[in-house]
Design a protein around this nucleic acid. Structure first.
Lengths: 254, 254
DNA sequence: ACCGTTCTGGTCGACAAGACGCTAACCCGC
DNA sequence: GCGGGTTAGCGTCTTGTCGACCAGAACGGT
């Protein structure tokens, strides 16, 4: 075959000196549970464009690191937390004009943290905040660039991951009650789950959750103290709870 | 906040003149069914590095187009087919050294075609071929760069998409028999599906498949001619057949 | 006319999942 | 300390789904 070497249109072999230059950044959507709702970490921009607006934390990819490493580095820089779950890539965004100054292609990652409270106290002195995702999705809070689209895609991704992987355990601490774990599913999916059936699905098979023998302190309203569990190894091979579209509707039309 | 403007490490605001330059390419994994097996379109490299090896078709992203447009353009250039399904993005790859000459970040897309036979006759004169994915996954055929990893990820992606979306209809023609559709599931998932149960799942709800009234010609072995269907609108909202890990095993241990 | 092959429709049983009620354990107010 | 309120844990019943298997229908070939 004769190799095609037209600049910008070289399917197989290409001349590396004739490439159109891009900046490559990595943005991380950091999710956590706080006050019973799903929250996202945002930082406030201090420079034009979009000065003063909220945005997803992110930064340049360095030539010496992989994309995954760049995402992990951004997460640590922003939260100081060394990765409850490794960030997972969920999309690349390169629309022309998404950055008004130049060609920027960004690779977006999703990271899930358990609620550590002081997320705003990262190593970076930037103003950071925990914002309910519902406020972002409803448009109450405007985001810079195309970050609204990125957050929307991230939420859709975590909804799928919650069903297919063990990401649910990343929202809670090392030990947790089944009610806490159930709250994760309910918050992310926006549904109500039956506590008894939820418990049965989790406990049914081994290695999902392992009882520690200890018990959690009951809430302010009292109630029987819940048993404390820790995550088993089975979460690595998919999740136990599956989304049923009818669940939410049945509550509306009994 | 005080904006951090260190080059290569600027979380929010950054100086666009201090970015590390990258080349951004778009690679497309093109899948199709041929001879009852899943096949992938590969092109042979004519230049170093990896001269003479097989690779996924791809090329530079142009600054004036989106990533999706670039993927669609690559698909049309390679196959001449105007997108049975729009290519879907499934990953970005930017490991340092993945291209020995320079920093290249590639965004990978998955495209599904019905078997058009003459895929090798694209507008590009490059040597192209249809290769069984099993040969690639087993390592019988070496791929350039990190393209083996990309193909592996693409296969995993199409297996999920087959369950979650209506991508199955993209493998077959405008009209098809249920046996053809079933063959898609069996080839991609590597399982055996009961023909009667498959039919029941598909026909159960409306708008999955619409009978055309016409019938297909039976195969060389005879048999009752199958009815011809066309795809309904319900495929846009998820697929009807769900993967069951036990199916293949139950055949072994009845 | 007979046979092999494929499609189509039906039945049965295993299993998953939701609904629901009961008991156990704890807090709080009196 | 005693009873009501609240929450966790557990069992049972019912319903629906899905795979395995079988029988009949519709064709081509011999």
């Amino acid at each position: 075959m004769e190799t095609n070497t037209r600049p910008g249109d070289a399917p197989v072999g290409y001349d590396p000196s004739l490439f159109p230059p891009f900046a490559v950044t990595v943005d991380v959507v950091i999710l956590t549970m706080a006050e019973g709702t799903l929250q996202v970490v945002l930082v406030r921009r201090g420079e034009a464009p979009f000065q003063g607006m909220w945005a997803i934390p992110g930064g340049f990819k360095r030539p010496t690191e992989t994309l995954d490493e760049a995402a992990k580095r951004e997460l640590v820089e922003e939260t100081g937390v060394d990765a409850a779950t490794l960030p997972t890539q969920f999309g690349a965004y390169g629309d022309p004009g998404r950055d008004p100054r130049m060609n920027v292609v960004t690779v977006a990652y999703l990271a899930v943290l358990r609620d550590v409270g002081a997320v705003a106290g990262g190593t970076d002195a930037a103003e950071a905040a925990l914002v309910p995702v519902s406020a972002v999705l409803k448009g109450t809070i405007d985001l810079a660039f195309d970050h609204l689209r990125i957050v929307r895609d991230a939420i859709e991704r975590v909804r799928v991951e919650l069903e297919m992987t063990g990401i649910a355990t990343a929202f809670v601490g090392a030990t947790f009650t089944l009610a806490e774990l159930r709250a994760v599913y309910e918050a992310v999916w926006g549904v109500q789950l039956d506590a008894a059936n939820f418990r049965r699905s989790i406990v049914a098979e081994d290695d999902w959750v392992i009882p520690t023998g200890r018990r959690a302190r009951p809430g302010p309203a009292g109630g029987r103290p819940a048993e404390l569990y820790r995550a088993g190894r089975a979460w690595n091979y998919g999740g136990p709870i599956h989304r049923v579209a009818r669940t939410a509707e049945k509550k509306v039309h009994p």
